[in-house]
Design a protein around this nucleic acid. Sequence first.
RNA 1: UCCCCGAUAGCUCAAUUGGUAGAGCGAGCGGCUGUUAACCGCUAGGUUGUAGGUUCGAGUCCUACUCGGGGAGCCA
Length: 470
Amino acid sequence: MPWIKVKDALNGQAGQSVTVKGWVRTRRDSKAGLSFIALHDGTCHDAIQIVAKNDLPNYVDEIAHLTTGCAIEADGVLAESKGKGQSVEIQAESVRVVGWVEDPDTYPVPMKRHTMEYLREQAHLRVRTNTFGSVARVRHTLAMGVHRFFDERDFYYVHTPIITGSDCEGAGEMFRVSTLDALNYPKADDGTPDYSQDFFGRETNLTVSGQLNVETYCQALSRVYTFGPTFRAENSNTSRHLAEFWMIEPEIAFADLTDNAKLAEHMLKFVFDDLLTRRGDDMAFFDQRIENGLIDKLKGIIESDFRTLPYTEAIDILKNAKKKFEFPVEWGLDMQSEHERYLTEEHFKQPLVIVNYPKKIKAFYMRLNDAGTDGAPEDTVAAMDVLAPGIGEIIGGAQREERLDVLDRRIDEMGLDQSDYWWYRDLRKYGTTPHAGFGLGFERLIQFCTGIGNIRDVIPFPRAPKQCEF
RNA sequence: UCCCCGAUAGCUCAAUUGGUAGAGCGAGCGGCUGUUAACCGCUAGGUUGUAGGUUCGAGUCCUACUCGGGGAGCCA
């Protein structure tokens, strides 16, 4: 009999002979002489019901003892269900037990309600649950949607390095990469480690961003993006931060901040729509069990235009808000979480693109705006943040400074060393173009699309401070 | 890293002014039923996060630590 996936069995024709393979979700017995086995294999949200009668040779010894988590293969005939709750089921002709659950009493994920915190400690088994199976499928679909979106628009996928020379990436605590003996390392004259004797002959770290590298490819291939792991050694302990996360960073040449914001908007709308189309079963589950109104939220974003709001204007709105804020609102200060939440969750109730931030709170590579842009009292740069209700900053990006003299001035102002950026500066010497890009936190995107509150529950094996099990 | 809260059965929680540990779910066995959040009965299951301290006596009070949650900072 042909082995078919559960998703195909659920859509199959009655009378078809099939084999299915997967894991038992539940077993229910009827003393009328049969058992009902709900079987899932990860190919869709729902399980298929297998009806096993007690005249099967291994019914008493094996089938009647199946528990949640057992791996089985079943042959049988697809039939319209005689019971309610499912349209088709499999009338079993044979059920083979492939793998037992050794001790059902201590099986960590039996068929009962569990907290997300508990399941996080069982990360190797949690994907067997409804919720985490759905998260895994949605994560996959969003990743494929991102690739499809860029591929269809002539973007090239660039694999920027994971290991990087240390001084060229700016902000963010980094994880050191070294083969030196931590207990007995060669020392320089001042007692610090002598990295010239290390593997790469210099100090190296895990990347905190692929942006600087991908800009080089942008200046030859026009439209490029990275999609890879990113590492931050910050001691962040929140529901929105990981030490290892995945980031999508497109970079476009001959483009300005407006083009950049449009790209972000089109990309988000594309992947939302793609997700709703391809994973309706899982999204219905999240809508029902995790965040009521989730699907309408995503549809609303797909159908509406993103709101672009200059930083200067945002500050005015916050200053005039009736709401009392814990932190001060002042032009030139970075917006706090409470301010961003007010704007996106209360005032506008939709995703926002905030643009043109004060120069002094943003990175050196962001393009300096003309004086007085948006009526700002001081210099601004062409930066943008996309804020999503419930998540906060989901995208951060900018038009890049393509003028070498201005870039050098910014490097000096920030106390950085031009020589550390020699190849980045070369891009401005040889055929420079206006260009822009952004970084999208992939896990934050998944959080937004599933309603899952903690970022550690949307990545298979979360890495966070004091957390590197599995 | 800072503020607040928490840790008791496999899981979720209860336990009076400090007085000798309980329930539901899950699991096993039995009963009943084309079942599907099943239902009824019985059974098993505990070094109360770790290390100290106070006390005749600590799940309960004190100190430190570890881990988890909510919020903040950093950001994606």
